[in-house]
Amino acid sequence: MTWLQILVLALVQGITEFLPISSSAHLILVPVLLGWQDQGLAFDVAVHVGSLIAVVGYFWRDVWSVSQGTLGWLGGRGMNPDARLGLLVVLGTIPAGLAGLLFNDPIELYLRSPLVIAATTIGFGLLLWWADTRRGARTVEHMTWRDGLWIGVAQALALIPGTSRSGITMTAALMLGMQREAAARFSFLLAIPLIVLAGGLKTLELLSLDGPVDWAAIAGGTVLSAISAYACIHLFLGAINRMGFAPFVAYRLVLGILLLVLFLV
C-alpha cells in the first residue's frame, strides 16, 4: 500500500464508521472505484482498532461508569442506571454477534457487490428518513429491555454491506421514539462490544494467514482512523439536533443512484 492509500482508506473508515452511511460499503467501494488492490485483512483490522480507540476515548466516562455499575450489580450491589445501560448494550450486541457467527461467510461470499450496496444504501437511507419523522422525546434512560433487543436485532442487519451499523441502529432507536442525540449516543456505545468482537474474529483470521505484514501501514491506518473517528463523533453529536439526518439520507440516495448508473448502465 502507498501512503496515499493508507491516508484515504483510514480517513474513510474513521469518518464513515459512526455516520449513518456504511463504513464497510465505502471500504469496499473506494478501492474498486479508484482501481486499487484490496487493502487486505490486516489493514481492515487496523482501521477498526482505530475506530474502537476513538469511541472508547470519547465516551470514556460513560464506559467507566457503566463498567463500574455493571460490576457492582454482578457483585450483588443491586441494579442501578449504569448497570442497566451496560446490560442494554450487552443485550443489543447478542443478535449481531449470533448473526455474524452464522452468516458472515455467505455474506462475505455473495453480498459484497456494488449492486447490493446500491440497493441497501438507497433502501435503508429512505427508512432512516422515515424514522426521523417519527422520532420522539425519549432518552437512553427511558429505554426498556424490549428497546435494547429490537435495536440489537436491527444491528444484525448491518452485516449486509451498505446497510450501515450506526444508520440502522439509529433508525431503530428513532422508530422507538428516541431523540436524535439519544439514538446516536446509544448507537455509539453499542459499537464498542461489536467492534471488539469483529476485530477479534478478524485478528484470529489474520493470525492463521501466512505472509509478511506491513507494520508501518498498520500503525498509520490505526492512528489516522482513530483521529478522524474521534473528530467525526464530536462534530456529529454537536450538529445532529440542528441538521437532522436529511443530509445523510441525501448522500445515500446520490451514492446509490451513482452506483446503479456505473454498474448497471
Rank of each mutant, 00 (worst) to 15 (best):
W3T: 06
Q5D: 10
L9K: 01
T16H: 02
F18A: 09
L19S: 03
I21D: 00
L29P: 01
L29H: 00
P31A: 08
P31V: 06
V32C: 00
L33C: 08
L34K: 03
W36I: 10
W36T: 05
Q39C: 03
A46H: 02
V47C: 08
I53Y: 01
F59T: 08
S65N: 13
G72L: 03
G78T: 07
D82I: 00
A83I: 01
R84Q: 13
L87W: 13
L88I: 11
L91M: 11
G92R: 01
L98W: 00
N104W: 08
L109D: 14
L111S: 03
P114S: 10
L115K: 11
V116E: 03
V116M: 14
T120P: 00
W130K: 14
D132L: 12
D132Y: 09
T133E: 14
R135N: 07
G136Q: 10
R138P: 09
R146Y: 07
L149I: 10
A154C: 05
A158V: 04
A158Y: 00
S164K: 02
R165C: 02
A172C: 12
A173P: 06
M175G: 11
M178R: 12
Q179M: 14
R185G: 08
S187A: 15
L189Y: 06
L190S: 04
I195Y: 06
I195F: 09
K202I: 07
D210S: 15
V213Q: 09
W215G: 03
A216F: 07
G221L: 03
T222P: 03
S228T: 15
Y230S: 08
A231D: 00
L237Q: 06
G238P: 02
F245N: 02
L253S: 04
I257F: 12
